[in-house]
Design a protein around this nucleic acid. Structure first.
Length: 428
RNA sequence: GUGAGCGUAGUGUAGUGGUUUAGCACAAGAAUUUGUGGAAUUCUUAGGGGGAGUUCGAAUCUCCUCGCUCACCCCA
């Protein structure tokens, strides 16, 4: 293949017409469900000040350290393509004084986010997320409800066996203490760890916990667990979350080794997987948690927040795997074929009549041979074809052809819209 | 950033140094038929990512480069 002069940048993809239905389906599902729970939509800029992310997400996180697309404007501003939604939404919350609105304030959004990493399965440089955030409510009900919402969304998208993994990673009260404990323990077993983990031990010791290496897991199995070292408040909170999940009858795994890569989390963290993908691929469909410090950290009032982000492409992959079907009711059911210039003139008008009647119609004004037009009609899988020829145009009639049976009927031109309306309604 | 695999028409592929004017299928367009689709026939469009080398000869071997894919890291 001769390489075209221009190609989409590495890790970024066109969303072709064929795949649009997946995105639409997901966005519709999310919007529907989430509005029921009182979420309002917000859109934030794709670019933000780079510092917003380095401060919010954490300077030493991979996302900020090496995955952020940054640029300097002509005016000297240092901006970054958003690598996730939360920081931007929190910024907007503070900037517009949304703490004056009735709390909890529930916001959602979706769109592209960017991370400059090596693309691979389920991972792109430009990908799409939907994102929910609940501001101003510290209660564990919210944590559980957000998980419930995610679960509902996946159910609606026909995911059967979904499993939620939850954990609590404590807060500024208890986590530093636990970290010390863990580091001490790991240091004494350093020899038994993989090289990666020995590095992690220095940089982010919590991450050793979810290493997949067998030898590390053996060490980790005896390590002190954060849930045994939560402070009173975190402990209660976590218990409540689990109780609520029980009450909702949501299947969950308590995974004491679940930690997340973003610094801003406190207390609850969770990830949602497809159950059968758990063993081989460790690719989460959604991930989220609570971050009660973030608003203050970014310059706002002390406000608890809980949120989640879903990976649209990853969900689509799952939908593809289970061959989720889409009703094709929205696609046009009528094809308009025309022969001769007089008929063509009439057809243009007729086409407009159908548009006004909100009946989907496909035309092929560029083609003249009836054969070619019927071929086209057949390919577009319509139920009916209207044939308007020279003769019909003169007689003010039109032929309705049923594409399944091949039966034809001639109808007066001024009756046709009503007639088709009836036919298509009855069919449904 | 590290490592591995792969790159032949729009798509999917065959060919593993000469019998290749690179074969096949699907897709797309046209004709047979200026008024009736799913079939058939014929025709058309279009190809070894790019560069260098080995060789009498390269899609085929070597190197470089670009791209894609997968894994690690990390994450949605």
């Amino acid at each position: 293949m001769k390489k075209p002069k221009f190609q989409a940048p590495t890790g970024m993809h066109d969303i072709l017409p064929e795949e649009q239905k997946y995105f639409q389906k997901i966005y519709e599902t999310v919007s529907d469900i989430v509005s029921f729970y009182g979420f309002k939509k917000i859109d934030t800029p794709i670019l933000e000040e780079a510092e917003l992310f380095s401060k919010g997400i954490g300077l030493s996180t991979d996302i900020v350290e090496k995955q952020m697309y940054t640029l300097k404007t002509k005016g000297g501003d240092f901006l970054a393509l958003r690598p996730e939604f939360t920081a931007g939404i929190v910024r907007a919350y503070i900037e517009h004084g949304m703490f004056t609105l009735p709390q909890p304030l529930k916001l959602y959004t979706f769109g592209p986010v960017f991370r400059a990493e090596r693309p691979q399965a389920g991972r792109y440089r430009q990908f799409h997320q939907f994102d929910l955030e609940v501001f101003g409510e510290g209660s564990a009900v919210i944590d559980a409800q957000i998980i419930q919402i995610c679960y509902n969304i996946l159910q609606d998208l026909k995911f059967k066996d979904v499993i939620v993994e939850v954990n609590s990673i404590g807060d500024s009260q208890c986590r530093p203490y636990y970290k010390k404990l863990l580091v001490n323990y790991l240091k004494s077993h350093q020899a038994a760890l993989c090289t990666n983990c020995r590095r992690r031990l220095r940089e982010s010791p919590l991450r050793v916990l979810d290493c997949k290496e067998e030898k590390c897991q053996r060490v980790v199995a005896r390590a002190p667990q954060i849930i045994d070292h939560l402070c009173q408040e975190c402990n209660n909170h976590f218990k409540e979350v689990l109780e609520f999940l029980d009450a909702l009858e949501l299947p969950y795994h308590l995974n004491p080794y679940l930690v997340r890569g973003l610094d801003y989390y406190t207390k609850t963290v969770f990830e949602i997987f497809e159950e059968d993908s758990l063993e081989e691929k460790h690719i989460a469909l959604l991930g989220g948690g609570r971050f009660d410090m973030l608003v203050k950290l970014l310059g706002g009032k002390d406000t608890p927040v809980c949120g989640v982000a879903g990976g649209v492409e990853r969900i689509i992959e799952g939908m593809r795997a289970r061959a989720v079907r889409f009703p094709r009711s929205s696609s046009p059911q009528v094809f308009l074929a025309q022969i001769g210039t007089l008929a063509k003139r009439r057809s243009l008008k007729l086409f407009e009549d159908f548009r006004k009647a909100k009946i989907g119609m496909i035309e092929s004004f560029g083609r003249d041979s009836l054969k070619a037009q019927l071929g086209r009609a057949q390919k577009s899988e319509v139920k009916y074809t209207l044939i308007l020829g020279q003769k019909e145009a003169l007689e003010e009639t039109v032929i309705i052809r049923d594409m399944d049976t091949g039966r034809q009927r001639t109808v007066k031109l001024d009756k046709i819209v009503g007639e088709m309306k009836r036919k298509l309604k009855i069919k449904k």
